[in-house]
Simulated scan of single mutants.
Amino acid sequence: MSSDLDTDTDSVRAIFQSYDGMEGLSHAVSPAPARPQAARWQALFLKIYPGFLLSATIALAATWLSQHYQSPVMLFALLFGMTFHFLHQEGRCVTGIEFSSKAVLRVGVALLGARITAGQILELGAMPIAAVVTGIAGAVALGAFAAPRLGLSRSFGVLSGGSVGICGASAALAIASVLPRTDESERDTLLTVVTVTILSTIAMIVYPLFVAAIGLDNTSAGIFLGGTIHDVAQAVGAGYSISPLTGDVATYVKLLRVTMLLPVVFAIAFLVNRGARRGKSGAKPALPLFLVGFAALVVVNSVGLLPKPVSSAAGEVSRWCLVTAIAALGTKTSFKDLAAVGWRPVGLMAAETALIAAIVLIAVELA
């Protein structure tokens, strides 16, 4: 007959997680129905919170520096996260970092829908919509076509093209979440976020000078800035640096690009699932739930059921989630991994940036 000394570690932990165990009762005694579930949630929380707390702390520090030095918060979060790469290699933080880079990311992307209404988009008219759709399609097509010819994966081409065409780091995170997982997936995502953030910062400085030099009016300048600058905050900031009207137009055009996140990511997820089904007969496509949440929030906000304070709060939570996810991704990647990829990814994303700028500028001039 076995004694208490023969009980394995998991059984000991289970015994001491219940009051019955503390009373010395046998592990075979059935506890109250709610206790096993509560114990599992508690165990999950204890696994997640160290890595999540690390990611959230890095996000908080990055936000503080961004506000005080007027620099991209995503870039700060990435760089800070990469300095803590050793914590992802082993130890208590690994599970929480993985949770932050995936689950928290999806929540942040879904909540982006609270910032958008259909009315904002329809007020722009046909020309900006056509220019934005063409620019996004062109950037993704260029990436998918050119990446294999530069020795890069087609997935990276789609990831970089979508990031440049839609909304920078946020789009990169959303698209990466539905692309096939490979050994280079995390590195490619981090490289895309770093490069698109740098290119967006350069565009925020250079493009207002460019539109002034070629003589665009306030409305046309807003369409160009909103349709070409990658990051939402930088597009809005560049627009308002010219005039309030330019800032308003740039904001709406940029939100139009954010709206395109839903169909683009859904289309990529569909194609990925269809490719996977070729090797697995009978497999059903998985519908990304965060895209469903994104679409639902857009609809609810468009019909006026989402109060302004709630919409603003959701936007702020979305920003925090995305910065936290970026910090977590940073801890999963080393500087050595990024330095090893060379100039080709940067050159590809620069070409995608130039292409979308040319498409939007031609549309503005023709209109």
Rank of each mutant, 00 (worst) to 15 (best):
I175Y: 12
S155L: 07
F99M: 02
A14L: 13
A350H: 06
V158H: 09
A144T: 09
I15K: 09
A327D: 13
R106V: 05
V346C: 05
T7N: 12
A340V: 09
A110M: 06
S170D: 08
T195F: 04
A110V: 12
G135A: 11
T219H: 10
V196I: 11
G91P: 04
P285S: 07
V360M: 02
L60I: 05
L124H: 03
A169E: 06
I15M: 14
L338V: 11
E365S: 03
S55E: 06
I121C: 03
M1Q: 08
A286E: 05
V164Q: 02
A340C: 10
D337E: 15
A126R: 01
V249R: 03
D248N: 02
R92C: 02
L322T: 00
L179V: 10
L54S: 06
A43V: 09
F156W: 00
R274Y: 08
K336D: 14
A340D: 10
V194G: 03
G24C: 01
G237F: 04
I229H: 05
G330V: 12
F80Y: 12
A235R: 02
K254A: 01
A169L: 11
G113E: 12
I121V: 15
A233P: 04
K254V: 04
L199Y: 06
A118I: 15
G304V: 15
L65C: 10
F84T: 15
A233M: 03
A28M: 08
K332E: 09
I97A: 01
S318Y: 10
A176C: 08
Q42T: 13
V360S: 00
L150Y: 08
L355Y: 05
L53S: 14
A172Y: 10
R106E: 13
A59Y: 05
A171D: 06
V133S: 07
G226V: 08
R278D: 00
C321I: 05
F16M: 12
R344K: 14
Y207S: 03
V206Q: 05
V300I: 15
A43P: 04
V346W: 13
L53R: 05
L329E: 01
L190N: 09
I268M: 00
M127T: 03
L256E: 00
M82W: 06
F45M: 12
G125Y: 07
L173R: 04
P285R: 08
L142N: 00
F210E: 04
R277I: 00
Y240T: 01
A137T: 14
G135T: 13
F45N: 05
G143L: 12
A147D: 11
F76M: 13
A269S: 09
A62L: 03
T7W: 13
D217I: 10
A203V: 06
T246F: 03
D217Y: 11
A38W: 14
A339P: 12
I326V: 15
V73C: 10
F86Q: 06
A38T: 02
T195A: 01
K102Y: 11
M82A: 07
R319L: 14
V298P: 02
H27C: 00
S101M: 02
L361W: 00
